[in-house]
Amino acid sequence: MVPISYYLILSGILFACGVIGFLIKRNIITIFMSIELMLNGVNLSFVAFAAQWHHLSGQVFVFFVMVVAAAEASVGLAIIIAVFRTRETLNIDQVNLLKL
């Protein structure tokens, strides 16, 4: 028997790691991965709440989050490739102009 709050704490830790990575990393791809980490933390809390309230909707929502994450990853990585093609860098500090 494990209290649900343990799972919530784990998901909180993952989410916090994602936020910190988003803030301190300088590589666009790593920043993007931090976003995925945050989404994963949220997914864990969805599943934990589904177990708490005995309702499967929580688990179904995880699928929607995954679909959004997959769509986001494909578009985001395409943007990264486009940025790399024009600026030839992945460092977020050097991508500081709105125009190409």
């Binding site: 993007f32 599943v47 699928f63 995954m66």
Partner: peptide, 27 residues
């Protein structure tokens, strides 16, 4: 594995297939 512990076996499988197997491979 945590999902499996909570009983969400389908979610766990899809997590591995979609996230670990597709999204991260893309990365």
């Amino acid at each position: 594995v945590e999902y499996l512990l909570l009983g969400a076996e389908f979610v766990a499988a899809v997590q591995v297939i979609v996230y670990a197997g597709a999204v991260m491979v893309l990365f």
